[in-house]
Amino acid sequence: MPDPILQISALDARYGDFQALYGVDLTLGEGEVMAIIGANGAGKSTLLRSIAGLMANGPDQIVYRGRPIGALRADQIAGLGIALVPEGRQLFPSLSVEENLLIGGRVKRDGPWSLAAVYDLFPVLKDRRAQPSTSLSGGQQQMVAIGRALMANPDLILFDEISLGLAPIIIRSIYDALPGIVAGGMSAIIVEQDIAKALSVSSRVYCLQEGRVSLEGASCTVSREEISRAYFGIA
């Protein structure tokens, strides 16, 4: 495996009295694309929210490029080079497409991603750059959410339910863009309900089941039987 960019050790996460993650261990290599799969409520989004600083964790539970970041704020983590494409897109409804993209650029990290680069990746956004973001289709809004994250020029990008609620043709177009996104060596973690799609774009896969890692392996070698056992908790 490439040198690690992210190491997670014994990560617990709670929403009040409800515990969502139990002792999760995970290592992501530099330039690696990893898939996280699991049923609804398995803890996938909680894991990404923890990495992005949207949930409080112990400082040493999440280490990024050798630095403990578990107790940092979300804006501090974004400044270090981690960007989240959140579930449900969460665009700013009062802002135009271009204004939403520029929000991502406020992190002011150097890198290849700019408005021009995002418009090259998703040309439809250039044509609609002055429109309110919420006037776009679901697929186009997802492109804005991805573009907003890229504008921060991250070294690690987190995709939470990248294809949720989108038509198959839109999902295909977004996944077709993925190689261009990570081509420069960017690392990525993709939370995805479509297991076949997740395996096709990743080098390794983790399965979460009720907040615990139930399977970890190379995407090209794990079997459907192993995934089914890990996904549904079948002994």
Rank of each mutant, 00 (worst) to 15 (best):
K126H: 14
Y119A: 12
G138K: 02
A145W: 01
G139K: 00
K126D: 13
L121T: 10
R128N: 07
A130E: 12
Y119E: 12
A145Q: 00
A145R: 02
A117T: 14
L136W: 05
Y119I: 11
G147E: 01
S133N: 09
T134Y: 13
R129T: 08
R128M: 09
Q142W: 04
D120I: 10
M143Q: 06
D120L: 11
A117G: 13
L125V: 06
S133A: 15
D127T: 13
G147Q: 02
A145C: 05
M143V: 08
V124F: 09
Q140Y: 03
Y119M: 10
R128C: 08
D120Y: 11
S133D: 09
G139A: 02
Q140V: 03
G138Y: 03
V144A: 05
S135G: 08
S133Q: 09
I146A: 01
L136M: 04
K126L: 10
Y119Q: 11
Y119C: 11
A117H: 11
P123A: 08
L136H: 04
K126W: 11
K126S: 14
Q142F: 04
V118P: 11
Q141W: 05
F122G: 10
Q131E: 12
R128S: 08
V144G: 07
R129H: 09
S135P: 09
A117K: 15
S133V: 12
F122V: 08
V118F: 10
T134H: 15
Q140S: 02
M143K: 07
Q141Y: 02
I146L: 01
V124E: 14
G147M: 00
Q140H: 06
K126C: 12
V144P: 07
Q141M: 00
Q141E: 01
G139H: 02
A117I: 10
D127P: 12
D120R: 15
